[in-house]
Nucleic acid binder design. Structure first.
Length: 488
RNA sequence: GGCUCCUUGGUCAAGUGGUUAAGACACCGCCCUUUCACGGCGGCUACAGGGGUUCGAAUCCCCUAGGAGUCACCA
């Protein structure tokens, strides 16, 4: 049997991280088994549809590297892959169920339902559809449907017994039928609800493995009843635990939690996000992969196995993502780094004519996330205000007096350099330390403080001096000397 | 509230009756070093609680507690 899986989002906005992870696992499972990965758009709720969301999904999937074999914009033999474009396929199946008694038309208005629901609530009862319209004789019901009276079609769930299914992760799951409601299958607007569309489309599209979030765990027994009534074999169900913001809240845009797009624009790199997300709720077989935690997409495909999926919700924690991001950035080739970093450099250094290649070598292994780059290098554009206390450093054996001396020595020495390269600056300053019997740090530390104004910087004194250029370096050293003198 | 599912350190997690209960991130030391970062070494912290079953339980069963999901003409 060829594996066919699908990712079936509804176009209500951006691709959130929970959705991204579901899509990733579904993709990995298909590819691992040499199967087909399908994208299907579930847009049966026309009111919730957000304009442009479908295109956003296509774009995000590609950015994430999740290439589907079949889908609305790539075609396939089982299309269309947008449910509203399949609107006529659902009713005949619903009528087949009506015919067999597994479903029935319902003419109750929303107002009537609301009233009965309120009454039930007032009596302290749990509301469930009361099968009111199940009592209408079939001929009368058909006549009313044909006469144009508004109707919906409801699933006729048995009142006794249990409904169940087998889940690849959670095992046997069952629910007493009397706790299950007669859900609407076909809405008044003629479109199916998720409860019906997922069954019909998964079957029609030949989906062998249904992978989705655990929010469907408790309604899946009902779906199996539908498969049964239709005489179809249910797919293998694989329910995936959610991604949480904290122990009690799911990740959601409503609370400002980042989407995949947001993460990218903040300067997280794609492969780091994918690697991190993959390991959030799934663990590769330790026997085969040991402590390995860096995986390319191909390696994820190779390693993916359902037995590594976790049953419990995982909290999305940016600390580790940040670490992955740092690692991925450090490992990328320098030129690639420079290409990615340039727009961020430009935010504070545009027009400064700075050596971006040199800057890149300094920032390359120090960049955790690109959005932090501008503030890390802002001191190059403008010397920040600083307190002379930072000239004092115990380990470097520096204080204000030594620092002043160091700057006094450094100024003419640097001034004398013709070709102001990093190597030359370094040679001069090291030489200075040696000749004056000072520790390297006693020269380097004060110079770096004077030209950066910061206790810690990407790169040391010599690299920064080179980046700033001779004039600016000398200007900042003089400023430092002034500061030290006036406070001394 | 009913139903369903879940519960190993702060976080991600390994573990499927016998382990000194891995590893990673974070955090804290120390080393390296012209700062920071990187790197190296070391440290801290966990089986939700209570009952069983068993020679032996994080692993099996029950109860309690906590959490999540669901109970729409949303998906």
């Amino acid at each position: 049997m060829t594996v066919r899986t699908r990712f079936a989002p509804s176009p209500t906005g951006y691709l959130h991280l929970g959705g991204l992870r579901s899509a990733l696992y579904t993709y990995l499972f298909a590819k691992k088994n040499g199967g087909t990965f399908i994208l299907r758009i579930e847009d049966t709720d026309q009111e919730r549809e957000v304009p442009g969301a479908v295109e956003l999904i296509y774009k995000s999937m590609r950015q994430a590297g999740l290439f589907y074999d079949e889908g609305p914009d790539v075609g396939g033999e089982y299309g269309p892959y947008i449910q509203t474009q399949r609107r006529d396929t659902y009713l005949p199946y619903a009528m087949q169920l009506v015919e067999s008694g597994a479903a029935y038309p319902c003419f109750c208005t929303k107002e009537e339902l609301q009233q009965r629901r309120d009454e039930a609530t007032a009596r302290g009862e749990q509301w469930k559809y009361d099968k009111h319209c199940l009592n209408i004789p079939k001929e009368e019901a058909l006549r009313r449907m044909q006469s144009g009276e508004p109707f919906v079609i409801r699933q006729n769930v048995p009142t006794t017994g249990v409904a169940s299914f087998e889940d690849a992760i959670y095992g046997h799951v069952e629910a007493p039928c009397d706790t299950l409601d007669d859900n609407v299958l076909i809405k008044q607007d003629g479109l199916p609800t998720y409860n019906f569309a997922n069954v019909i489309d998964d079957h029609l599209m030949g989906i062998t493995h249904v992978m989705r979030g655990t929010e469907y765990l408790s309604s899946t027994p009902k779906y199996n009843l539908l498969y049964e009534a239709l005489g179809w074999t249910p797919p293998v169900y694989i329910h995936m635990s959610p991604v949480m913001k904290d122990s009690s809240r799911k990740l959601s845009k409503r609370y400002g939690d980042p989407s995949f797009e947001d993460l990218l624009s903040q300067g997280y790199v794609r492969d780091a996000i994918i690697n991190f997300i993959a390991l959030l709720g799934w663990c590769p077989d330790v026997k085969k992969y040991g402590e390995k935690e860096f995986f390319t997409m191909d390696e994820l495909i190779e390693a993916f196995d359902l037995s590594g999926l976790s049953k419990c919700p995982a909290i999305f924690n940016t600390e580790k993502l940040l670490w992955f991001n740092h690692e991925y950035i450090s490992r990328m080739p320098l030129d690639e780094y420079q290409k990615m970093a340039t727009p961020w450099f430009d935010k504070v250094l545009a027009g400064k004519n700075m050596d971006y290649t040199m800057l890149s070598t300094l920032m390359h292994t120090r960049t955790e996330i690109f959005s932090k780059v501008p503030e890390m290098i802002a001191f190059l554009a403008e010397l920040p205000e600083y307190d002379i206390d930072i000239y004092t450093h115990k380990k470097m054996k520096t204080d204000a007096a030594i620092s002043l001396k160091a700057l006094e020595l450094a100024l003419p020495a640097l001034e004398a350099i013709e070709d102001f390269t990093e190597e030359n600056v370094k040679a001069v300053l090291m030489d200075l330390a040696a000749k004056n019997e000072m520790k390297n740090g006693q020269i380097m530390w004060p110079v770096r403080i004077a030209i950066s104004g910061l206790a810690s910087t990407p790169g040391g004194a010599t690299e920064i001096a080179y980046l700033l250029g001779k004039d600016e370096t000398l200007r900042r050293i003089r400023l430092g000397m002034d500061k030290l003198q006036s406070n001394g």
